[in-house]
Amino acid sequence: MNAKLTSSNLAEHRPFLLKFAVLQVGRREVAEDLVQEVLLAAMKGADSFSGRASVRTWLTAILLNKVADHRRQAGREVSLEAQQEALGTDSIEAIFRANGSYASMPQEWRNPEESLTDKRFSEALEACLGRLSEVGKQVFLLRELMGLSIEEICKELGLTATNCSVLLHRGRMRLRGCLEDGWFAKRQKQR
């Protein structure tokens, strides 16, 4: 086995792979199976790890394939056409007016850091993620949860850098708006 890849440093990535998988496939048991397959495949294929990508990027790429296989079997494949469509419909048109100003003014979030330790905040965040398109959510999670670069995401998903950055912009602005309405506005009203 490659000196850089031991089972313990593969295991260190497991919580991230599991979180990503749960958010992708929805069911924890399925996600655990997929992650187990990824770690087994990684152990077997350790020689094919070039060391050029980070270990997490490499594991994430294997997981993406497993998720795609799972979706294909479940008949929930996200086709290239659907990805293109998402670029059209995962829109931020509702967020901005035609002249590019905000349709509704972004509000101040008071002490947002306090929310980070609140379990209900994680739930609100996951609910907001669920409102993005499949590909929009995937790109966002690859960037913010798994820490992949734009170049790596483009390569894995077969998207152009422009499409990637458009999807990230939409995803971030929609999550921002969803958290404002679904969490911060309610929280401030309760005080």
Partner: peptide, 25 residues
């Protein structure tokens, strides 16, 4: 408005960097 969005997108990144909690490990 944009100054708020600037802070909030930074917060969003922070929220995800801590999304995998020690309890998940």
């Amino acid at each position: 408005g944009c100054s708020r969005v600037e802070r909030q997108l930074g917060f969003l990144r922070e929220a995800f960097s801590g999304f995998v909690k020690p309890t998940d490990r």
